[in-house]
């Protein structure tokens, strides 16, 4: 014989009971994963020693402030331009033929190693310039320079053509 009832006694565990139960669960879990927890604590300790934990904490707590600074700075044309340049540079490198770039870098290294102006060909006028071109090394470098100029010209002409069609 039960009349309808909506009354429920609140017998929620006390704060201490609740905490005790939660801690028990955590302790069980730690015991189960002892090795990884120990490794994790060591990592945390090292990060703390190095001050990295403070940095991470600051990043998390002040994350939105940092993003705001970044966004505010980016609104300034000079900074936006800088970021654009960085990305343009990254994109430009992405488009280069890796083999050619590698060769170019090797040559640059070679140049810097041999950059002794006293040992280079002496140029005093048009005649001595033409004479210097007969040097096989100078001739090879000159060919590369001409190839670069040619490529540059091709690029400029292509852009001009595209401009006409738009």
């Amino acid at each position: 014989m039960a009349k309808a009832s909506t009354q429920i006694y609140d017998v929620s565990p006390s704060h201490a009971e609740f905490t005790h139960a939660e801690l028990e669960q955590i302790t069980d879990w730690i015991a189960l994963h002892k090795d990884s927890v120990t490794a994790l604590l060591t990592l945390f300790d090292n990060m703390h020693e190095a001050g990295l934990l403070d940095i991470v904490n600051a990043l998390i707590v002040r994350g939105q402030d940092l993003l705001k600074i970044l966004a505010d700075q980016a609104e300034k044309p000079e900074y936006a331009g800088g970021i654009k340049n960085v990305i343009a540079l990254v994109q430009g490198f992405g488009m280069l033929d890796a083999k050619v770039l590698a060769q170019l870098m090797r040559n640059l290294v070679f140049i810097t190693r041999n950059l002794d102006l006293t040992n280079g060909p002496k140029v005093a006028g048009v005649w001595s310039t033409l004479q210097a071109v007969r040097d096989p090394d100078v001739a090879a470098g000159f060919s590369v320079a001409l190839a670069i100029i040619r490529g540059l010209g091709q690029g400029i002409r292509a852009e001009q053509e595209e401009g006409k069609s738009v």
Binding site: Q64, L67, K68, L70, A71, D72, A74, E75, A80, I83, K84, I87, A88, Q91, G94
Partner: peptide, 17 residues
């Protein structure tokens, strides 16, 4: 801030890659 971040993404858009 979200709007600023969208603007930032737009501003630095020299290419989508």
């Amino acid at each position: 801030l979200w709007e600023s971040m969208v603007d930032l993404v737009k501003d630095i858009e020299p290419g989508y890659g």
